[in-house]
Design a protein around this nucleic acid. Structure first.
Lengths: 212, 212
DNA sequence: GACTGTGAAGCCATTCACAGCT
DNA sequence: AGCTGTGAATGGCTTCACAGTC
C-alpha cells in the first residue's frame, strides 16, 4: 500500500461495498472474494481490490476477505464508526421526506432537527423530530454538535443558508437545490441534482430512439 | 466538429448550462462568452467550449454565444423539445415529495401518475395526481405513452418493479432505492444514492479533521 | 488451484495553447 | 482585441496481467 490520491469514485464504491457486505453479514456469510463482491455490485474484481488497496491489505491471498472484518474496516475509513447528528434545513416536501427516510439511520446518520421559515410548520413534528424556526438555527448550532446539514430549500435561498451554516461551523452540506453552492475548501459540498439526472435520461433515450 | 464518443459528464454539464442560460434569458441578457458561462457555473471556459463543440458550432469567434439560440440548441440536444410524461412508482414520503416538486415541470417533465400497493393510499390524490394501484401499472402503460419512470420503492422490490416497467416498454428509470437495478442495454438506469453521498461527506470530513 | 496486491498499460476526460474568425 | 473551435498535452481512473501467498 502506498499513500496517494484517492479517487472520489473509490469512496463512492466503498459505500456501496459496505452496504452489500452488511447484507451478506445478515445472511450469515463469513468470507468472500473480490470476484464475488464485483458480481454483487456489478463491478470489476481488479477495481474492488485496488479500491481496498488504497487503505491497507485487508484480504488473504488464495482465500479472500473476512466479511465482518472487511466491513468494519470500510466503515472506519468512511467515518461511520460514530453517529453523525444531522440537521435538515427546509421542511418542504423533500425535507420532510428525507427526515423520515430510514436509510440514513441505518448508516449512522441521525436527523436531529428540521428548520423552516413557515410559521404554520414551526413547532409541529415530523415523526419525533421537531420543526424549529430558521431564526433559531444559529442558537441551535451553538449548543449542539452538528457537522452535516442537508439543504432542501429553494435555489434562491440556498447560498444564503449555506453561508449561515458554514459560519456556524458546519463541515458538510448535502445540497438538493438546483444551484451550485460555493463553500471554502474545508467545507464539503455535495450536490444532488434531480433534474440533471432526468435530463441525462432524456438525452440517452432520445439518442437511442434516433439510432433505431 | 467531429463525431466521437460524448462523455457523460458533458451531458450533465449541458443540463447545468441550460438552467443557467434560462436564468440569464429571464434577466433579458442576450449574449455571453464561454468565460462568463464558466464563471456562472464554477467551471472552466475551455471545457464549456469543448462541450458545445461535440454538437456543432454554436458561437461566433470574437463575439460569443447568443443565449436564446444556444439554450434552444442545448434543450434540443437533451431531448427537452417535448414534454416527457413520467410516472412515479412508490408513493412513500420520497415518491410523494417528488410528485410535488416544481423543478421537474419547469424542465418539461410531467408527472402523470403515482403507483402504490397500499390500499389506504390508492384512490387518493397528491396535488392533482391520483395514486393508482400497482396492479394497474401494466394496464396504465398499455394505454398511455410513458417512457420515464421514477422508482421510489424499498430495495427489496426495486428490481421486480423495474422488470415490470421494462417489460412494458419503459426506456428510462431514475432509481432512488439503495440497490443496483439491472436493465438491458436499451433501457437507461440512473441511480441516485442518497446514503452514498452522505458517506462521501463523512469520509471527507473525517479526513479533514485528521489533517488538522 | 485460488485469490490477493500491484506495477504497467490502456483508456477517457480535462486543460492548455494557439490558429482562425469577427 | 476578443473570443471560438480544436489538436496536443496532461492528468486521472480503470483494467490487465502476473508475481506473491496461502
Amino acid at each position: 500500500m502506498k499513500t496517494e490520491k484517492i479517487p472520489e469514485a473509490t469512496i463512492a464504491r466503498l459505500s456501496v461495498y459496505s452496504r452489500y457486505l452488511t447484507k451478506l453479514e445478515k445472511e450469515g456469510i463469513v468470507k468472500i472474494s473480490s470476484g464475488h463482491i464485483a458480481k454483487g455490485i456489478s463491478g470489476n474484481p481488479a477495481q474492488v481490490r485496488k479500491d481496498f488497496a488504497y487503505f491497507g491489505e485487508f484480504g488473504t491471498r488464495g482465500v479472500g476477505y473476512k466479511i465482518v472484518e472487511l466491513n468494519n474496516n470500510i466503515k472506519r475509513i468512511l467515518g461511520l464508526n460514530k453517529v453523525w447528528d444531522t440537521i435538515i434545513v427546509g421542511s418542504g416536501n423533500l425535507g420532510t421526506a428525507l427526515a423520515q427516510y430510514n436509510g440514513f439511520s441505518d448508516r449512522n446518520f441521525n436527523v436531529v432537527s428540521l428548520f423552516d421559515n413557515d410559521v404554520e410548520k414551526i413547532g409541529s413534528n415530523i415523526g419525533d423530530i421537531e420543526i424549529k424556526s430558521i431564526d433559531d438555527l444559529e442558537g441551535y448550532l451553538d449548543n449542539n454538535e452538528v457537522e452535516i446539514a442537508i439543504l432542501t430549500v429553494p435555489s434562491s435561498n440556498a447560498q444564503t443558508l449555506a453561508n449561515r451554516l458554514i459560519a456556524k461551523g458546519i463541515k458538510g452540506i448535502l445540497n438538493f437545490s438546483p444551484t451550485v453552492v460555493n463553500a471554502p475548501g474545508d467545507v464539503q459540498v455535495r450536490n444532488i441534482d434531480l433534474t440533471v439526472n432526468l435530463e441525462i435520461l432524456s438525452f440517452n433515450i432520445t439518442l437511442n430512439n434516433k439510432e433505431e
